[in-house]
Nucleic acid binder design. Structure first.
Lengths: 228, 228
DNA sequence: TACGCCAGGATTGTATACAATTGCTAGCGT
DNA sequence: ACGCTAGCAATTGTATACAATCCTGGCGTA
């Protein structure tokens, strides 16, 4: 299923962390994960290193690995950086114009979501992420795309708490369509307004949900494999 | 000298790549580096993974590692992202104010550099990098700091080609002092102007040097340890 | 009782052995 | 002469063994 075990462990471990199977503060040990995933320490180590890079796991040299704790300020800061970068995406796209085909496709998608509304909830988070990513890619600035991807990966796990009800999804559709319309006219001012509203709403939503998550993770298990 | 061999190899290998001992396009093998640094493959692998993350080395699965080739557009794009992020640093610092002590220290440093001018050339690149990093840290936004650090690490190796003569260093001093003065007065407009000039000059300088580097690396050796 | 020291265990850091994959090459057949 | 295939060499991917380090707990002493 995977090309190599490192990537496989990385994927599966990320998912478990994002699903809070391993809650923030949980201690991970290399050997424990070996048993968990039935592989040796080499791929586990590489996966852990990647997760440390991505910021999902914290590492204390020669001691242990710990699932990164949720921190409202960090999330807020990350969203702030994201907003700054995506505003630049708007600026670039309005300046240089966007391929019609891309705009058409995205617009069709979000019109579709809006019109048969209850059913889009399942992929809402993924769709939203893709929307922003594709616009970033349309700038042609890879450094920008990758930087945004890095930030996104740090807030990915809280994005799940953004679009949780139909009203919020409807609002998202409106914002996205407004952004697309503005981009089509190369109207930077409205693009910026719509984008800022879109992201700030998302951040507020997430932040609201964060306290629940934090308390839930405190209630859940805390210790790692052994050594209570 | 180092806490662990991985970090040590990482540092030393980075330096060799930056110094063009291993030029862009050069093929790196794990075993070759083992012999080179007298360590086993484990730390070498970890160092290579870090370098891949940092973008200095490209990896072809199950085949080889190659020193990343220089690409003018990528550098330009990275500088663009850096400018955007550092402009946000200015915005935040002007809004929330900066600790006097930090401004005093930085100002003293750059006044010192300017006044006994020829001698600062050696650490010019490092000093410049620290200047921008410390201002970023002063925002208190870790996501911003780390994102900037990520971008910086991608352009680190070309920054060496920025401040290469005294006139350029003098110019840098002027810009930095101007930035500090503006920050002291929370004067966003002038801070932005000085910063933009500072970074755009740097980018232009680097880009100018890039063609030389590229041609020099094409002239130099290309193959790795063996297998011509 | 409080503090410091030492031993033991747990865990990461490093080295090395083995497996799997890739790319080249020589040799065969057509 | 060309293309295909089997086998070889080189290299990375994975597993495991060994070394170094840090934490914990218990003991002794002031």
């Amino acid at each position: 299923m995977a090309e190599n075990l490192s990537a496989d462990v990385y994927e599966r471990l990320s998912e478990r962390i994002l699903k809070l199977d391993y809650p923030p503060g949980y201690r991970l040990t290399e050997e424990g994960l070996c048993a968990e995933f039935q592989v040796s320490r080499s791929p586990v180590r590489e996966a852990l290193n990647m997760l440390v890079q991505r910021g999902l796991v914290r590492k204390n040299p020669r001691q242990n690995y710990v699932v990164r704790e949720l921190d409202v300020k960090e999330i807020r800061d990350a969203y702030h950086v994201r907003l700054v970068l995506e505003l630049e995406v708007m600026t670039l796209l309005c300046r240089q114009g966007v391929d019609q085909a891309i705009l058409d496709r995205l617009e069709a998608h979000w019109l579709g979501v809006r019109d048969r509304l209850p059913e889009g909830m399942a992929h809402a988070a993924d769709d939203d992420e893709r929307f922003h990513r594709e616009l970033a890619e349309a700038t042609g600035n890879q450094a920008l795309t990758r930087t945004l991807a890095a930030i996104d990966s740090q807030i990915h796990f809280v994005r799940l708490y953004d679009i949780t009800n139909i009203e919020r999804l409807r609002r998202t559709c409106t914002d996205h369509l407004e952004i697309l319309t503005a981009l089509r006219r190369q109207d930077l001012k409205n693009a910026v307004v719509a984008l800022a509203r879109n992201i700030e709403w998302a951040e507020a939503n997430v932040e609201g949900a964060l306290s629940d998550v934090a308390s839930r993770s405190r209630a859940g298990g805390r210790e790692g494999t052994s050594r209570g």
